[in-house]
Simulated assay, not measured.
Amino acid sequence: MTLPVQRSWFTVSRLRPDLYRITEPRCHRLFRANCYLLLGLRRNLLIDSGMGVAALRPIVESLSRAPLAIFTTHSHADHIGSHSEFPEHDILVHPAEADALCRPGTRGLRFPKMSPQSAQMLRRAGIAVTELVVDAVPDDDYDIDAHMRRPVKPTSFVDEGSVVELGDRRLEVLHLPGHSSGSVALFEAETGSLFSGDAIYDGVIDDTGPDASVPAYFATMERLKRLPVQTVFGGHNDPMTRGRMIAVIDGYMASRTGRGG
Score class of each variant (00 low, 15 high):
Leu45Pro: 04
Thr191Ser: 15
Thr73Gly: 05
Pro67Cys: 04
Leu30Asp: 03
His74Lys: 03
Pro4Ile: 01
Glu222Thr: 13
Gly40Pro: 01
Ile200Arg: 08
Leu45Gln: 10
Arg242Gly: 02
Pro239Trp: 00
Met51Gly: 00
Tyr201Lys: 09
Leu56His: 09
Gln230Trp: 01
His28Glu: 11
His28Thr: 07
Gly126His: 04
Gly108Met: 02
His83Pro: 01
Arg259Glu: 15
Val134Gln: 08
Gly161Ser: 12
Pro215Gln: 13
Gly243Cys: 05
Gly167Val: 13
Leu46Lys: 07
His94Leu: 13
Ser49Thr: 14
His79Ile: 01
Val164Met: 04
Pro239Gly: 00
Ala98Gln: 11
Asp211Gln: 13
Pro151Gly: 05
Ile246Asn: 01
Asp140Lys: 09
Ile249His: 04
Ser162Leu: 06
Arg7Ser: 10
Ala216Met: 08
Arg7Cys: 00
Lys113Leu: 14
Ala212Asn: 10
Thr208Val: 07
Leu132Val: 06
Pro58Val: 04
Ile205Glu: 12
Asp140Ile: 14
Ala54Cys: 10
Gly251Tyr: 10
Met253Ile: 13
Thr106Met: 14
Tyr20Ala: 08
Val129Tyr: 03
Gly52Phe: 02
Ile80Thr: 09
Thr73Trp: 04
Thr23His: 02
Val5Thr: 13
Met148Tyr: 04
Thr155Glu: 07
Arg256Lys: 14
Leu68Tyr: 04
Arg110Glu: 15
Asp90His: 12
Ile144Ser: 09
Phe157Tyr: 15
Gly203Trp: 05
Gly234Glu: 02
Cys35Phe: 08
Pro104His: 12
Phe233Gly: 01
Arg103Asn: 09
Arg242Trp: 06
Arg169Lys: 10
Ala33Glu: 06
Tyr201Gln: 06
Leu63Asp: 09
Arg42Met: 06
Arg223Trp: 02
Met240Ser: 02
Gly203Val: 07
Asp140Phe: 10
Ala77Tyr: 04
Val134Lys: 07
Ser213Val: 14
His89Asp: 11
Arg29Asp: 13
Leu194Phe: 02
